[in-house]
Amino acid sequence: MTSSDPDIMHFAVVQYSHSQKLEMSFTMFQERQADLSKIIMGIELMESITLTATAIKFVIDKVFTEEAGAREGATRLLIVITDGETTPGDQDLRQTIALAENKDIVRCAIGVGGSFSPGSKAEKELEMIASSPSNLIKMKSYDDLQSIFEGLKSKINNREGGTSNRQGFTEEAGAREGATRLLIVITDGETTPGDQDLRQTIALAENKDIVRCAIGVGGSFSPGSKAEKELEMIASSPSNLIKMKSYDDLQSIFEGLKSKINNREGVHSSSNKSSFELEMSQAGFSALITEDAIAFGAVGAFDWSGGLVEFRGNTSTFINVSKAQSNMKNAYLGNVCRYV
Results as ranks from 00 to 15, higher is better:
N330I: 14
K226A: 14
I242S: 03
E291F: 05
D209N: 15
E31Y: 10
K138Q: 11
Q33R: 15
S134Q: 12
S19P: 04
S222V: 13
S271P: 03
E291V: 10
R166N: 12
L36G: 03
K21C: 09
L278E: 04
K121Q: 11
P133T: 03
S326P: 12
D195R: 09
D104T: 10
G256S: 09
T75V: 13
M41N: 12
I110M: 01
T191Y: 09
N320Y: 04
E277A: 10
T290C: 02
F11Y: 15
I105F: 02
Q30L: 08
L51D: 00
S48A: 13
G114A: 06
M46Q: 15
N135P: 04
T187M: 13
A301C: 04
I210C: 06
M328D: 07
L204R: 12
R199C: 08
I253H: 07
D303H: 10
G334N: 01
G297I: 00
S134R: 11
R94M: 10
V340N: 10
V14L: 03
M41E: 12
D292Y: 11
R199F: 11
G42K: 07
M1H: 11
T52Y: 02
V340G: 09
A98I: 00
A203Q: 13
F58I: 02
G216Q: 02
V13H: 12
S246D: 15
K226C: 07
A34S: 14
S246Q: 12
E230W: 02
Q33W: 08
F276V: 11
N135F: 14
A122L: 01
S4W: 09
F149Y: 14
I105C: 03
F296T: 06
F318C: 00
M28A: 12
R76G: 05
S271M: 10
F26C: 04
F29D: 06
M139H: 05
N272P: 02
R176W: 11
L22S: 09
S269V: 09
M46T: 09
S236V: 04
M280A: 12
N157C: 12
V211S: 10
T65Y: 09
I148F: 14
S131C: 02
E265F: 05
I56K: 00
L204G: 07
A55V: 01
G84Q: 04
P238M: 01
M41V: 09
Q200R: 13
G161C: 05
R32Y: 08
S281Y: 07
M244N: 05
V299M: 11
G84P: 02
L136M: 15
L333N: 06
A293R: 09
I56A: 00
D5P: 03
R166C: 08
L93A: 01
D7N: 13
S3V: 12
G69W: 06
N272G: 08
A175M: 07
R32I: 05
G69F: 07
